[in-house]
Each structure stands twice: as structure tokens, then as C-alpha cells.
Amino acid sequence: MNLAATRWRAPAVLYPVGRSAVLAAGCGSIAFGGLLAVGYWVAQGAWRHPWWVVGAVFATWSVVVALALRFWRALPTGDLHWGGAHWELKSAGRSVDGAYLCVHADLQRFMLVRLESADQPPCWLWLERRAHPERWNDLRRAVYSRAETAGINMPLDPSPPAG
């Protein structure tokens, strides 16, 4: 680890996580758009295809909507904590300790991340700036920082010792 990384270490962060109305509205809009597209396809001549093709399209749309709803309902509600070495999630239904974070989508005001621990299955989190705007930049610094490693005792002052 270089001196700059040691000097500008990300602060400890406690950030609220939960189900997002924005994510629900986005998924709902996409599902409704898919239904409109399938409906338009049916209106434009899907009747020319065998009945099972039309049924398969509607069944596929239904399964995708059900999976999106299941994903949204499974999002944990609680607090995400970065202490400098690893991530922790304290939630009513689930607690994850000693985990690391993997960013899957960074949209500046929203982040889709996966919390992974050695002893538990991965946990998906949707993070929003509006959940706690004052801590958003600290959270982003922590997400992109490296974990502290034991045994590194580098001085914070780059000047050589006097003497």
C-alpha cells in the first residue's frame, strides 16, 4: 500500500439500506412496458402463431415479473457498516459479518452491490444517495477503498525523521 493510500483512508461509515421506492417504480415501469410490448405484438398479429407460442410469451413475462418482485422483497432493511477492514450488515432478518462488497452498477446516486461473506450466501443491496445524503460521499469512498491490512505501520507524515 502506498503512502497516499494510507493517508487518505476511507472513514468508517454506517449507512441505512432498505427497499427502495425508486427501484420498485423502475421495475414496475419496465414490467408495464413489457406488458404493453407483448400486448402490441398480440394486437399486430400474434394470432398467426400457434397458441402455445403466445402462451409461452405471457408465461415468460409473468415469471420475469415474479422474479423482479421476489428480488425487491428480499432486499434487506438495516444498516451497512464499513469499519476499515470489512463490511457488516445488521438487519432484522439477516446479519452478515466479515464480508466484502462487489459493485455491479454505479449510477452516481444509486448503487447495486453484492455483499459476499465466506460463510453465507451473497446478499444484494440497492444503495441510494437520498437514504442519507450527508454520508453518501463517505460511503462511496469506502466502497472503492481497499481494506486495511494487518501489520502495516507506515507513518502518516512523509517527511524523514529529524536527526
Rank of each mutant, 00 (worst) to 15 (best):
V54S: 12
V54G: 14
W124R: 12
S62H: 10
R114P: 01
E128K: 07
T6A: 05
H132G: 06
P161T: 05
A162I: 02
L80M: 09
S117V: 01
Y144W: 01
A131I: 07
A131Y: 09
G39H: 11
A74G: 06
G55Y: 05
Q120H: 14
R19I: 02
R135H: 04
W8L: 06
V42W: 15
T77G: 07
G34V: 11
A99L: 01
Q120A: 15
V63Q: 12
G39V: 12
A25F: 08
A10Q: 06
N137P: 01
N137M: 07
A46R: 12
A10P: 11
A12G: 04
T149Q: 14
T6Q: 05
H86C: 14
L14T: 15
A147F: 06
L80V: 10
L89F: 07
Y144T: 00
L67P: 08
L35V: 11
V103E: 11
A46P: 08
V63S: 13
T77M: 06
G28N: 01
L75F: 11
G93N: 03
V13R: 02
H104C: 09
F58V: 15
V103I: 15
P158Q: 02
W8R: 04
E128T: 07
R94C: 09
A12N: 05
S145I: 03
H49S: 13
I30T: 09
P121S: 05
L75D: 05
R94Q: 14
V103W: 11
V143P: 00
G39E: 14
G84K: 06
A37M: 15
R70N: 09
R130E: 14
A118S: 13
W8E: 03
P16R: 05
L156H: 00
A162R: 05
Y15P: 03
A150C: 09
L139G: 01
R70C: 09
G93V: 02
D97T: 12
R135A: 10
N2I: 01
W51N: 13
L3D: 04
L75S: 10
L67A: 13
P155E: 00
L3K: 01
F71D: 07
V143N: 00
L139F: 01
D106S: 13
V53K: 10
L23F: 12
A4H: 07
A162H: 02
A24H: 11
S145L: 02
A24I: 09
G33H: 06
P16D: 01
Y144Q: 00
L115I: 02
A99M: 01
L125E: 04
Y100M: 06
F58R: 15
L115V: 02
H81R: 15
W8A: 04
T149G: 07
P160W: 07
S20V: 10
F110K: 09
V96R: 06
A25Q: 13
D157R: 00
A147K: 08
W124K: 07
W51Q: 12
W82K: 06
E116M: 08
C123R: 03
L67R: 14
G45Q: 12
A37S: 15
G163W: 03
P160I: 04
W51V: 15
R70M: 09
L67F: 13
D138E: 07
W126V: 15
E148C: 08
P155Y: 00
V22H: 08
A150N: 12
N153A: 05
G18I: 03
N137I: 05
W72S: 10
